[in-house]
């Protein structure tokens, strides 16, 4: 298990990275934390001619609260989401989701940007970002464009990113009064890919009605799956058990695949169970937060 030959490029700035990328385009893979790419290289499933290591690009490493949102550079490590007080305090959903990613060593190396661009349908952060309504900042030769997370994931491990572009970072809303959240997941062992996962980010108004609801599922479709119908159903309704149960009835349209770890039927069942449990937990937290 040794990778095929490649040329290793280490840009020192975002401009240099983009320039290099523009020159080599399709023959280049961007290396961030390497937790998915390196195994693919070792198995020779990925065999780029150039490997562009962005770990030393300073513009991609930031974590700050600004204008009521949490801004994260693409190189933010998973472990930082739970460790950094500003991230954990302002966006606890990310900390909760990140805790389910792999193991400590993986969380210390793996990056937020890498997880989103790799776009494994069972990964935690893509679903969490959709639930949060994250806004992705993509840099390319034409400048910067902003893409909502829900539009970024286009198919099985396919994202809205051109070969000459780099995901530079993203921003997510921060918790305020009435905010509730939950990330729940079923996997064979802790750290394995989700059989099913549910991310919820919502807020209640002072009457106990759903003001805003974001829900996304992991592991049950060819991409992280936004439960749009359920979100629409819930907004404006009272946050109570019967409504949650009714929302579950609206949960349909995703298309899980069975494999050696879980059948399609089991994934569907778990998606529904976790949906209810995650909504309950998020509502409870929101109520405590009012």
């Amino acid at each position: 298990m040794k990778s095929a030959p490649f040329e290793y490029l280490v840009p020192a700035s975002l401009a240099e990275a983009l320039e290099t990328l523009a020159g080599h385009q399709d023959e280049t893979k961007v290396l961030a934390g390497g937790q998915s790419l390196v195994p693919l290289l070792k198995l020779r499933l990925a065999r780029p001619r150039y490997l562009l290591d962005i770990n030393r690009v300073p513009e991609l490493s930031y974590l700050e609260l600004k204008d009521g949102r949490l801004h994260l550079g693409a190189l933010t490590r998973h472990s930082a989401l739970g460790r950094e007080p500003s991230a954990r305090g302002s966006c606890p959903l990310l900390a909760e989701a990140a805790a389910r990613i792999g193991h400590t060593a993986i969380r210390n190396r793996g990056t937020v940007g890498g997880s989103l661009c790799h776009a494994d349908p069972a990964a935690e952060l893509p679903a969490a970002m959709i639930a949060l309504g994250a806004e992705l900042k993509i840099d390319g030769p034409g400048g910067t464009r902003l893409v909502p997370a829900a539009g970024f994931f286009q198919g099985f491990m396919t994202v809205d990113l051109q070969p000459d572009e780099i995901l530079a970072g993203l921003s997510v809303p921060v918790a305020g009064p009435g905010t509730g959240w939950s990330y729940l997941e079923v996997s064979r062992r802790h750290g394995d890919f989700a059989i099913a996962g549910v991310a919820v980010w919502l807020s209640l108004d002072d009457k106990g009605l759903f003001r805003q609801v974001g829900i996304a599922l992991a592991g049950v479709d060819d991409r992280p799956w936004k439960a749009r119908a359920c979100e629409d159903f819930l907004v404006g309704k009272e946050a109570k058990e019967e409504v949650i149960a009714a929302a579950r009835e609206q949960l349909a349209g995703f298309d899980p695949t069975g494999d050696i770890h879980a059948s399609r039927e089991y994934r569907e069942l778990m998606a529904g169970e976790l949906f209810v449990q995650a909504l309950r937990q998020a509502v409870e937290r929101a109520a405590n937060n009012l």
Partner: peptide, 16 residues
């Protein structure tokens, strides 16, 4: 014994 084998034994997942 996988989790779904257990659920199959209480009818929560169909025989397969």
């Amino acid at each position: 014994v996988k989790p779904e084998d257990i659920l199959r034994r209480v009818g929560a997942v169909g025989a397969e």
